[in-house]
Design a binder for these strands. Structure first.
Ligand code: MN
Ligand code: MN
Ligand code: ZN
Ligand code: ZN
Lengths: 145, 145
DNA sequence: CGTGAAAATGAAAATCATATTCAAATTCAA
DNA sequence: TTGAATTTGAATATGATTTTCATTTTCACG
């Protein structure tokens, strides 16, 4: 069975919160885990619909929120106004190409450390952050060889 | 005359782009420059209305966009879904308190340099970025003395 | 297995910030 | 002064997401 671990995680979360294990939730989790990258709600909905033509958009929205709460998905909102989801994995930030939409992940312990020092200097306790670099990727640069 | 320099900047921009110097634009610029911090469209509109009860919300939106284009204002969108404007000044990033809404500005040459190196490593040309730290300010921390 | 209370679903309608439309008013170069 | 171009503001549209609510489904318990 594919995505067995994640389905068990979801089931555990549902039980823990007295929520119900529906076929829609399992189906959306399956489609989400099979998709790659940073997927929009709309694309996710379309892919869900290919296999389950009766699942509503509302249920997709609600289920993705649930998957985020369960720690299986992460919600991202870049500057184009639509919400994207990615399979939850360790913290990272993003490079976003404003021409082709490519999204590259990066992480930098030094930046993280420095930003926390800055925050501390201001008496701030950082709970989360977003660090997004917008520009042109290698393929979209004018001066690309 | 207050804000003389900025009014001249606006006039120059308008002339340069064959746009018209209206009393609404001047009024909105005045109110905007008199406001402090990172002001939402709604608050700005309310403050404009106090002095000019006939100026429409639409005109405020359009004028703020214009002031951004003219380099007098900067648009910011933090995670609460509303657009804010601040008087344009040199590049900086933000600490945002999710309890009281306080916004603190910071800048760090090392972070800027490091992020550009990361981007370059990926073949990326960075055109703009956002680096926002969300958390609790000194006054809102649970463990504040 | 049934049962029923609680939860979930999906279609439609609501929200909410912002954008667009359009007729009337204003600006400003000539 | 004038009239073509621009701007204004009220109303309406937009578009992503959320809420509503009647109906359906789940599942703990008997
Ligand atoms: Mn990512
Ligand atoms: Mn600022
Ligand atoms: Zn690209
Ligand atoms: Zn605070």
């Amino acid at each position: 069975m594919v995505h067995e671990v994640e389905h068990r995680t979801l089931t555990a979360y549902l039980e823990e919160h007295s929520l119900k294990n529906t076929k829609q939730r399992a189906a959306i989790l399956d489609v989400f885990l099979s998709a790659t990258g940073h997927i929009t709600s709309e694309v996710l909905f379309q892919q869900v619909r290919e296999q389950h033509s009766n699942i509503g958009y509302t249920t997709v929205y609600r289920t993705m929120k649930l998957l985020c709460d369960a720690g299986l998905a992460s919600e991202r909102r870049f500057d184009d106004g639509v919400t994207r989801f990615e399979i939850a994995h360790e913290h990272h930030d993003h490079l976003v190409c404003t021409r082709c939409g490519k999204i590259i992940e990066f992480e930098c312990a030094m930046i993280e450390k420095t930003q926390n020092e800055i925050a501390e200097r201001h008496g701030f306790r950082v709970l989360r952050h977003r660090h997004e670099l917008y520009g042109h990727c290698r393929d979209c640069r004018e001066d690309s060889p």
